[in-house]
């Protein structure tokens, strides 16, 4: 298993996917945090929020890195299907289950790398944008919990993407499905049927980074829902991998 993990780690850092998704994550984080700072500036002036809440809100805006994370995970698997390299991976890894496990573990490690990036850049952007708008940073327990929540979902988004990649097995389809589900399906379902929508992966992740929407799950329950989705996706991915032909 150690050899397969070593090889997968080297694969993760090979090609352009890691830095393109890293750059996308930084872009989305900066875009979100600049918007959050602009809104906070207006709301503080009007008395609709205070510095502590605005600080936590800007930290929360870095949740958008999870989109880059989940895309990285999906591409980490599906790009091998697109080139046919997956056949060599299957031939050399010893067993298909071992390969799936190694990719999921390495995907989670890459999720930690993305989370580390967010952990460094979120406070830096907070300081930069608040200074730019002439606002005071007021770090609170809420900001700390929000940052921990963001780091958790950014980390877990990669194995989620990895398992989706194993199930979908096509690069273009996996990117499309990840984008549609993350940006459209989960949110829409939550708006139309909140009692059902709150159990989707995206909305459960929202609860973990303390998104202040009504009817959200509690954090422990949201973490359980996320674990449930990961287990279900892992079971489905393994079943498909061991029973289908590798093309």
């Amino acid at each position: 298993m150690r050899e397969v993990l070593n090889a997968e780690w080297l694969k993760a850092w090979s090609g352009r996917t890691w830095w393109i998704m890293g750059a996308l994550g930084v872009f989305l984080g900066l875009l979100g945090s600049s918007g959050a700072a602009a809104v906070a500036d207006q709301q503080i002036d009007s008395g609709a929020t205070d510095a502590a809440a605005a600080t936590a809100e800007l930290i929360r805006s870095w949740f958008s890195v999870l989109l880059a994370s989940v895309l990285f995970g999906a591409l980490f698997v599906s790009r091998e299907y697109n080139t046919g390299a997956i056949s060599r991976s299957v031939l050399l890894c010893g067993s298909r289950t071992r390969l799936l496990a190694a990719k999921t573990i390495v995907g989670t490690a890459m999720g930690l790398v993305f989370a580390l990036l967010a952990a460094v850049l979120a406070p830096l952007s907070l300081w930069g944008f608040f200074t730019l708008f002439g606002m005071d940073v007021q770090w609170s327990g809420e900001a700390t919990l929000t940052l921990l929540g963001v780091l958790t979902v950014v980390t877990l988004a990669v194995p989620w993407g990895v398992l989706l990649g194993w199930i979908i097995r096509n690069q273009a389809a996996s990117v499309t499905i990840v984008l549609v589900v993350t940006l459209f399906v989960d949110e829409t379902l939550f708006r139309v049927l909140p009692a059902v929508g709150k159990f989707t992966m995206g909305i459960a992740m929202g609860a973990v980074y303390r998104d202040a929407k009504p009817e959200m799950l509690s954090i422990p329950l949201a973490l359980l829902v996320i674990a449930g989705w990961l287990v279900l996706a892992g079971w489905t991915a393994r079943r498909l991998l061991v029973t289908r032909d590798v093309k």
């Binding site: 080297l10 090609g15 080139t83 046919g84 056949s87 991976s89």
Partner: peptide, 27 residues
């Protein structure tokens, strides 16, 4: 068993040495 199959391409975006290093590590 060493295999060279039609349709099994190298890892995308790699150099020859990098691709070989990946598979050498796996082995």
């Amino acid at each position: 068993v060493g295999v060279s199959m039609d349709g099994i391409a190298p890892m995308p975006g790699t150099s020859g040495r990098r691709d070989l290093r990946i598979w050498a590590r796996m082995l």
